[in-house]
């Protein structure tokens, strides 16, 4: 038998290929912009840049841990070792060819990052982790190709907008007007943090990705481009799973060789 190679996701389309790429931790995400560490901290709003991390419990070394073979085996993340609080970054992704669909945020997040807690809701995806671990993850989420300044929103609250039409500048609707299009520079700037608290100075997250480039990079099936129903391989996969789950619920012993 040929050596097993992780395959991650079925599908025979551009979108499926993008999904596989983003879910594959050996693929290095392309960096498209630079946002400083301090600005990432400001955008999330959990602490002031330079401020010490607040802790929820003493560092593991100081508090001592119960005798447990799994604790001895599994190395804690730097944030967990230090006793950091668990904080979050929350993303809203437009339905218009955004790089990551909500579920893709969870799938790729769990294949790329250790010790993260990701939840997918209808219009937002929080990623929670120990604070210093989170800051590293957040930087990659914002600086690389899986983020579009216009169609992805860093939104801790009042997230509404993912399914609304884009505005005249191509930006996703945001009731709190956290981000604005700067016509002079052509860049998107955040004037409020993810909760909506005004920032002392605006933070640029770069120029929006062009429409045709977004269509190349997107992991979203959408009728205007790659419609879900055209990727027969994924449809077959979904139908197969549905059938197997149902038949196994009736009698797992009868599900053999299919």
């Amino acid at each position: 038998m040929a050596t097993y190679k992780p395959q991650l996701y079925p599908g025979n389309s551009k979108v499926a290929a993008n999904r596989k790429k983003y879910m594959d931790p050996s693929y290095k995400l392309e960096k498209l912009r630079t946002v400083s560490d301090d600005d990432i901290v400001r955008l999330m709003g959990h602490r002031v840049p330079g401020e010490a991390y607040k802790s929820v419990h003493p560092p593991l070394e100081e508090m001592g841990e119960p005798s447990c073979p799994i604790r001895e085996l599994v190395e804690a993340t730097p944030g967990a070792k230090a006793g950091d609080r668990i904080r979050y970054i929350q993303m809203t992704d437009s339905v218009y060819f955004t790089p990551l669909t909500p579920y893709m945020r969870a799938w790729s997040g769990h294949t790329r990052y250790r010790g993260v807690d990701i939840g997918v809701l209808s219009g937002r995806v929080p990623l929670e982790a120990r604070e210093r671990d989170l800051e590293k993850v957040a930087k990659e989420l914002v600086e690389t190709e899986i983020f579009d300044p216009a169609r992805c929103g860093i939104r801790g609250a009042t997230v509404h907008g993912h399914s609304l039409r884009l505005d005249e500048n191509g930006l996703m609707f945001d009731a709190l007007r956290r981000f604005q299009f700067d016509k002079k520079t052509g860049e998107v700037v955040y004037v409020k943090d993810q909760i909506g608290v005004p920032l002392d100075k605006p933070i640029s997250v770069g120029k929006p990705i062009k429409e045709e480039e977004l269509r190349k990079r997107t992991s979203e099936y959408r009728v205007e481009d790659v419609a879900f129903r055209t990727d027969k391989e994924v449809i077959n996969f979904i139908e197969r799973l549905h059938m197997l789950r149902t038949e196994a619920g009736f009698d797992p012993n009868r599900v053999k060789g299919i």
Partner: peptide, 8 residues
């Protein structure tokens, strides 16, 4: 692995 790494 996940809850152990985060000790959470």
């Amino acid at each position: 692995v996940t809850c152990g790494a985060a000790r959470s």
